[in-house]
């Protein structure tokens, strides 16, 4: 059973990293390290699914090469892969169990000095984002309470990650919205500049800008921006202007 005080400190540490300058890798690193402190295991690693749904190594409690390899070889088989695919916690407390369950993964785990493993999925409402893998250098059956502690931490990590993705998506949208609105203003301003400079009305000015845009194979907003910032003079937009 995990130490209560340590558990509270861990949850606070994880919550702290969720604010402001959130970095997903830093956050996963904290999660991996804290899992080791809290659960009396030797090492922890986290895999996250990429855009194609393939698991990729995201963080480890130590930069031991064998640990990274152990995570990376779990593309088809292993506790991390299984927790991710089935979206449920898996645990094997003895090497015999590990060997019978994951025959290709087991010898590599032993080479790395690990005989017991377990993993929990990073999941929220039916979608899995990855999994957290725990390794022990001696037989070690995590009990249900341990497993729920790990799952709670994994859940916090998942929420943090989804939140970060949402913020990213929103900032992309915000930029698109502002750019689109600004383009319309700039186009109107450009019409005014061309109308005044070429002594025509604004509708005719718009026709000139459109014709120039089409023949120069540019975008309307780019032509307008160039007119407004002065890099394209209004005279050049007029028909018959030498370009």
């Amino acid at each position: 059973m995990a130490d209560q005080q340590l558990l509270v400190e861990t949850l606070v540490a994880l919550a702290d990293t969720l604010v402001d300058d959130y970095d997903v890798i830093d956050f996963m690193q904290t999660l991996a390290e804290r899992s080791v402190d809290l659960l009396d295991v030797s090492a922890a690693g986290i895999m996250l699914a990429d855009a194609d749904g393939r698991l990729r190594h995201a963080a480890c409690s130590s930069e031991q090469m064998r640990l990274v390899e152990l995570l990376e070889l779990q593309l088809q088989e292993g506790p991390c892969f299984e927790a991710f695919e089935r979206q449920t916690a898996v645990r094997s407390g003895t090497f015999e169990e590990v060997a019978s369950r994951w025959p290709r993964f087991a010898p590599k785990a032993r080479e790395g000095g690990f005989v017991a493993v377990s993993a929990v999925p990073l999941r929220l409402r039916g979608s899995a984002l990855g999994a957290l893998n725990l390794f022990s250098d001696r037989p070690n059956e995590l009990d249900d309470a341990d497993l729920s502690v790990v799952q709670a931490m994994a859940d916090i990590a998942t929420i943090g990650m989804l939140q970060e993705r949402l913020i990213h998506d929103q900032s992309v949208l915000t930029t698109q919205l502002q750019t689109a609105l600004e383009s319309r203003i700039v186009i109107e301003q450009a019409k005014g500049i061309v109308a005044e400079r070429n002594r025509i009305d604004v509708d005719e000015a718009f026709q000139q800008i459109r014709r120039f845009t089409r023949s120069a194979n540019r975008r309307l907003s780019d032509t307008a921006r160039a007119i407004v910032d002065g890099s394209l003079t209004a005279e050049l937009v007029a028909p018959g202007a030498s370009r």
Partner: peptide, 30 residues
């Protein structure tokens, strides 16, 4: 809305604002 385009619901903002931006362009030349 697609990238580079404005949401359909925002397309028809008050027309009087367009006049203000056109006038701004003209004054900048004048």
């Amino acid at each position: 809305a697609g990238v580079g385009s404005l949401a359909r619901q925002l397309e028809h903002l008050p027309a009087n604002r367009a006049v203000v931006h056109q006038a701004t362009g003209m004054i900048s030349v004048q």
